Computed example of a mutant assay.
Amino acid sequence: MASIRERIDASGKKKYHVQIRLKGFPPQTETFNSKTIAKQWAQRVETELREGRYMPHALAQRRTVKEMLESYRDRVLIPTKPKRVRDQGQQLQWWIDKIGRYSLADITPAIIGQYRDELLATTFGKANPKKLAPATVVRYLAILSHAFSVAVKEWEWLPESPMPKVKKPKVSNGRVRYLSADELARLRAAAAASENKFLPTVIEVAVATGMRYSEIMNLRWRDVLTDAQGRCSLAVLEETKNGERRGVPLLGTAQVALDALRLAHKQANGDKVSLDTLLFPSAAKKDAPVELRKSWETALKRAKIEDFRFHDLRHTAASFMVQSGATAPEIAEVLGHKDLQMVKRYAHLSKDHIAGVLSRMNQAMLAGPPVTAEASRDGS
């Protein structure tokens, strides 16, 4: 129970001293200028003590946001996610510069929302200045949110995170640019003529598997498993965007391309496979993947393909899977998505499965004529 005692300080002002005693917990005390605030504090602390959520305000008051973010960078980001340090380290530094001076007790959703809006208004580029995309701002908020979560759950530096009350910008995932069969043929031809010997293989693997650029370029021969015939059969991805280990089967053009690459590697290494070697190593930098940007852009120009990024090869693989009859869960598993939200963007590419559902419903419930895929498309 809480007891509130009125006291007079040396200057003659009224103070309200609160003491909370609950069995199994150490006494909690605090002094306030207002009796109303004293009662509110007592009620909140009693509730949090019983629910196991209470943390002394003084602890959060002593720590700053800068301390939290620097500790997060040193204790979480660098040891566990070294490949994300460059991008996420910059994001952390931005937050340190903006809100690092606040104590953890004083940081509020309103303050974070103010700087979220500043991010949304930020422009980059001199010739054609553009605002940061909402998706980029969401990533800035995500790293801050994770830092707060760690500080709350693991370090117990503050009782709760302010991030759940901060609204995220709406992100539109409407863009789905993928290659047509003709564009793919032109890109293959242009890649075959490239001075970069790895470009054709990288493109084949990307289109045939839907793997991300970083996943492909960081593959080592130890990550590529072979079958009984010695053919490349599975790529094991130890480090993925969502942090989960994933196996990607190598079939068709991806298998053929990697088989040829593996054979060339063996011939250059005394008929042996150096397991620690990257599949696509740089000739200029030790233990680093080859740089493909220039050769990729040149191939796109030669193939006369516009408004296309390397990541769109992943969209191409997903789009081809949809048009081949793959279900959303199957595509999510291949691409390594944790949920189906990202896969929904491809649903419009094939209405056959929707037409089948409507046809069965018509026959069973409405006694109407079957709905064909052709009729569905004609009516859309």
Score class of each variant (00 low, 15 high):
Leu349Lys: 10
Ala326Gln: 02
His315Lys: 10
Arg314Ala: 07
Lys304Thr: 02
Ala332Val: 03
Asp312Lys: 05
Asn362Met: 11
His315Tyr: 09
His353Leu: 04
Leu340Ser: 09
Ala332Lys: 09
Arg302Gly: 15
Ala332Ile: 04
Ala326Gly: 02
Asn362Tyr: 09
Arg314Asn: 05
Met365Lys: 10
Ile331Phe: 07
Phe308Lys: 05
Ser319Asn: 10
Glu333Pro: 00
Ala332Met: 07
Leu366Arg: 11
Thr327Gly: 01
Met342Trp: 00
Gln341Cys: 00
Tyr346Met: 05
Leu335Val: 00
Lys338Gly: 13
Arg360Lys: 15
Ile331Val: 14
His311Phe: 12
Phe320Ile: 12
Asp352Tyr: 04
Val357Gly: 00
His315Gln: 11
Ala303Val: 03
Ile305Ala: 07
Val334Phe: 11
Ala355Thr: 01
Met361Ala: 13
Phe310Arg: 02
Ala367Glu: 15
Tyr346Glu: 05
Gly325Lys: 01
Glu333Val: 04
Leu300Tyr: 11
Arg309Asp: 03
Ala328Val: 14
His311Ser: 03
Pro370Arg: 13
Met342Phe: 02
Leu340Trp: 14
Leu366Ser: 10
Thr327Tyr: 10
Val343Glu: 02
Ala364Glu: 15
His315Cys: 05
Ile354Ala: 14
Met342Gly: 00
Val343Leu: 02
Asp312Ala: 03
Leu340Thr: 13
Ala347Gly: 01
Arg314Val: 08
Met342Pro: 00
Pro329His: 09
Gly325Phe: 06
Leu335Met: 12
Lys301His: 13
Met365Gln: 09
Ala328Asp: 11
Glu306Asp: 08
Leu300Lys: 13
Arg345Cys: 04
Pro329Ser: 08
Phe308Asp: 06
Ile305Cys: 08
Val334Ala: 10
Ala326Trp: 12
Met365Tyr: 12
Thr372Val: 05
Ala303Gln: 03
Thr327Arg: 08
Leu349Trp: 12
Asp352Val: 10
Ala317Asp: 07
Arg345Ala: 04
Ser359Gln: 09
Ala364Ile: 12
Thr316Lys: 07
Asp312Gly: 07
Thr372Gln: 07
Met361Leu: 09
Leu335Trp: 04
Thr372Cys: 08
Asp307Gln: 14
Gln323Ala: 03
Asp352Ser: 08
Ala328Met: 11
Met365Arg: 06
Ala364Gln: 15
Glu330Cys: 01
Val322Gln: 00
Val322Asn: 05
Phe310Asn: 02
Thr316Ser: 14
Lys304Asp: 13
Gln363Ser: 14
Met361Arg: 08
Ala332Phe: 10
Thr316Tyr: 13
Val371Thr: 14
Thr372Leu: 08
Thr327His: 07
Val357Tyr: 12
Ala364Lys: 15
Val343Gly: 01
His337Tyr: 11
Lys304Gly: 01
Gly356His: 08
Asp339Glu: 04
Pro370Cys: 14
Ala303Cys: 06
Lys301Tyr: 10
Ala303Gly: 03
Lys344Arg: 15
Val334Tyr: 02
Val357Gln: 14
Ala303His: 02
Ser324Asp: 11
Gln323Leu: 08
Arg302Gln: 12
Arg302Thr: 05
Phe310Ser: 04
Gly356Trp: 02
Pro370Glu: 15
Pro370Leu: 11
Met365Phe: 12
Arg345Gly: 01
Lys351Asp: 04
Ala332Gly: 10
Thr316Cys: 09
Lys304Leu: 06
Asn362Glu: 09
Asp312Trp: 09
Gly336Ala: 06
Ile331Asn: 00
Val357His: 14
Gln363Tyr: 08
Met321Tyr: 15
Asp352Arg: 05
